[in-house]
Write a protein that binds this DNA or RNA. Structure first.
Lengths: 337, 337
DNA sequence: GTTAGCACTCGTCATGTCTAAGTGCTAACC
DNA sequence: GGTTAGCACTTAGACATGACGAGTGCTAAC
């Protein structure tokens, strides 16, 4: 029993099953793929693969289907990432180049990726840990209500309304603004928590209270900038692959809606040297995704933010991986300097 | 054959069907509801209702189920909006009062509403046509790149990066900012397009080009503020009511994802004097929602923005309508002056 | 290590039968 | 006229049955 052929058999099973959604038997295998041996031999190989937990039979005398472990081996060792067609690559390029705004870029990206893969696409907003304070604006909405706007040099803007706890005039607020801005301009958002107390301390005691409140607001803003968000598209594709989620797509939709779940999942996916990381079925840390796989990769500066797709475990991994990788590259290029 | 009893029968059919998801027959009807007549009489009534197109039989010798038209009559004339429980009302109040930010309020609202109704909840961002310019900020990101921030007195902030087409220093930009701000502060966003040319004209010819670009940017921002957005929650509820969408929930998910569709739908729903508007099944202008109903109402100043839920036609209208109405009221109160 | 052959296992499909639910109609009743 | 009882008729769904085919595992021979 040759080891390489066994892998070949596994590959064939995965490919056929992904293609037909039906358990694949030994006979069909020798017919469709010209392995140079008889079906009996394949049966032996399959028995061995089953012993190793790479494939499984839904019931006696049905063909075999890959297990999570089988997909894993397939993805890691057997499959070759299938390059995109020329047309597809051109589509990516033209579609993404037409956009300017960050929101717009990400929006287009997910749509594109979901169409390319026929799956749910997800993209995380870029991390802004390296972002610095570019501008701070305080706007008096009511005697005690102040709108704080924090602008990072990445172009990201965050705002929030707070209650400063004491009446403030426009002038007083402008004064505070200048003070904050002078001290904080250029400060990395990540260092804001440390930098704020000094600014507050330097304020006139009379306005200490308001300054305190403003500092708290800025702190919250900075951390909500760190706090991650994501964009998503193609949920309707889930309905099409309804059959692939034996129970229901409910848990999957829940996971997608609970963005926290997805974000943690994405960030926990270690970066793979091959460029794309795959998390298969029960490997996912969230139970609702036990029947789903996530294919993701980093993009942008430091590849810290993730872009990826989510679909049933029974997914065309080579093509999906190729699409994700390609999109991530274009994305990096466009967002890059 | 008494007209009132016929309506009573329709009501009973709708209620039972909504409750059991099964076609309801004449016998079951007389058992569950104490109409003072025999099943034979009910059968006559049912035949009449069927003739009028209010109910239909899926096949010979099954019970009847309401048609869209039947639901319509039920909603319009028969049903009484069921008041929320004390606990539910308290839940709404406490949950919504804990929030400050507009985004936060809307986010909480949809979550709450989707939980209350076990349906998909949708809320449109408030129209800002009456909003006025509170503040304008230009930030130089690169020699020619300027970040424009437009802050409305409603607390809404919009930003965008533009290319001004000529090199500008920080000072020059600050000058332009002051000029724009002085002229435009307090201008309703809706009047911005008319107000901008004058400001540009008043600028020094040297900076005319940049001013032109900035004005275009502001115009775009103002209109993108007018442009509508929405928040949504509870899509996972669709999966649970999978059975209610005979074909697939795919088209529904598509409609939800294409926010344009939903927004048009919401805005086309005329305001109903009773407070809540319902659009049932094929009444919806979008084919993918032929099996779905939307229950919505306006909120906020002028009730111009909409909040509502989407679910299968087989939906508990009285409760849903009550929930939507209650949530809209709290929402108006919180966002109110 | 590979192959052919064969007995055995099950899921699937087509078929047939039976039952319960529910209707529509007719004739009697108030 | 509206209401009722009764009955023949229709049909979906549940269930059993059996043939079929796909597929396996094993053994013995190559």
């Amino acid at each position: 029993m040759s080891e390489p052929r066994k892998l070949e058999v596994l590959r064939a099973i995965v490919e056929d099953y992904v293609h037909s959604r039906e358990p694949v038997g030994s006979k069909a295998l020798v017919e469709r793929h010209h392995l140079g041996v008889s079906s009996a031999t394949i049966r032996n190989d399959m028995a061995a693969l089953e012993d190793e937990g790479l494939i499984t039979a839904p019931h006696t005398s049905a063909g075999r289907i890959p297990t999570d472990k089988g997909y894993r081996l397939f993805v890691d060792q057997i499959s070759a990432v299938k390059p995109l067609s020329q047309a597809e690559r051109r589509a990516i390029q033209t579609l993404l180049e037409g956009s300017d705004d960050l929101d717009d870029v990400l929006e287009r990206t997910v749509r594109l990726l979901s169409q390319l893969t026929n799956q749910v696409a997800v993209v995380q907003y870029p991390h802004l840990s390296r972002a610095m304070v570019r501008h701070i604006e305080f706007v008096l909405l009511a005697p005690r209500q102040v709108l704080i706007v924090l602008i990072a040099d990445t172009g990201k803007v965050e705002q929030r309304v707070i209650d400063v706890g004491q009446d403030l005039g426009d002038d007083a607020l402008a004064g505070l603004r200048t003070r904050f801005l002078k001290s904080l301009s250029g400060t990395p958002l990540s260092l804001l928590p440390q930098a704020l107390p000094a600014v507050v301390a330097a304020c006139e005691p009379l306005r200490r209270h308001a300054a305190q409140a403003l500092a708290r607001g800025l702190d919250a803003l900075a951390s909500s900038t760190r706090e991650e968000r994501m964009v998503m598209a193609g949920t309707a594709n889930l309905a099409r692959s309804n059959v692939d989620f034996p129970l229901s797509i409910g848990p999957v939709l829940e996971a997608l809606e609970e963005q926290v779940v997805m974000l943690r999942l994405l960030s926990e996916m270690a970066e793979d040297p091959r460029g794309v990381t795959v998390s298969i079925g029960r490997e996912n840390p969230y139970d609702g995704l036990a029947e789903a796989s996530v294919v993701a990769t980093g993009y942008g500066p430091g590849s810290s933010a993730k872009v990826g797709v989510l679909g049933p475990t029974r997914m065309d991994y080579p093509t999906t991986m190729a699409a994700v990788r390609a999109v991530a590259r274009y994305l990096s290029r466009i967002l890059g300097p």
